[in-house]
Amino acid sequence: MTYVVTESCIKCKYTDCVDVCPVDCFREGPNFLVIDPDECIDCTLCVAECPVEAIYSEDDVPGTQQHFIALNAELSKSWKPIIEKKDALPDADDWAKVTEKLEKLER
């Protein structure tokens, strides 16, 4: 089992989760983070740190977000690791509660 970043992270990209990850499994895109499933050790530390509740255990990803399991695996192969907390995107608070924003994902 691994953890998965879902839609709530798009256009927010809070990186509190990165700070607590003991194995540096997060990868960074322009406006989204993903978890590399091959690196994740299922420690759960990142879940509580995410202010928009975007991180789920693979077994608990909501039905409407299941495609994010494959998306995390795909993007983690090409995006670079992020190992330090950074500022969230400038308008992250405005996007935090927006739903159905997959089309806003920048690769």
Rank of each mutant, 00 (worst) to 15 (best):
M1L: 15
T6K: 09
C9K: 04
I10Y: 00
K11M: 14
K11E: 09
K13M: 03
K13F: 00
K13Y: 00
Y14A: 11
Y14T: 05
D16E: 11
C17I: 04
V18S: 03
V18P: 02
P22A: 10
D24Q: 12
C25A: 15
C25M: 15
R27E: 03
R27V: 03
G29P: 02
G29W: 02
P30D: 14
F32N: 02
L33M: 07
D36L: 12
D36K: 07
P37N: 01
P37W: 02
D38R: 06
I41N: 07
I41D: 03
D42E: 13
D42K: 10
L45Y: 11
C46I: 01
C46K: 00
A48S: 11
C50K: 05
C50Q: 03
P51G: 04
P51W: 08
V52S: 01
I55S: 00
Y56R: 08
Y56M: 10
E58Q: 15
E58R: 15
D59H: 09
D59T: 09
D59Q: 14
D60P: 05
D60L: 07
V61A: 07
P62T: 01
P62V: 01
G63F: 10
T64I: 13
T64Q: 13
I69F: 09
I69A: 06
L71W: 04
E74F: 10
E74N: 11
K77I: 07
S78W: 11
W79S: 04
I82Y: 03
I82T: 04
I83S: 09
K86N: 03
K86W: 02
D87S: 15
L89E: 05
D93Q: 11
D93Y: 12
D94N: 08
D94G: 08
W95G: 00
A96S: 15
K97V: 09
T99Y: 10
E100W: 15
E100T: 10
L102T: 07
K104D: 06
L105P: 03
E106V: 11
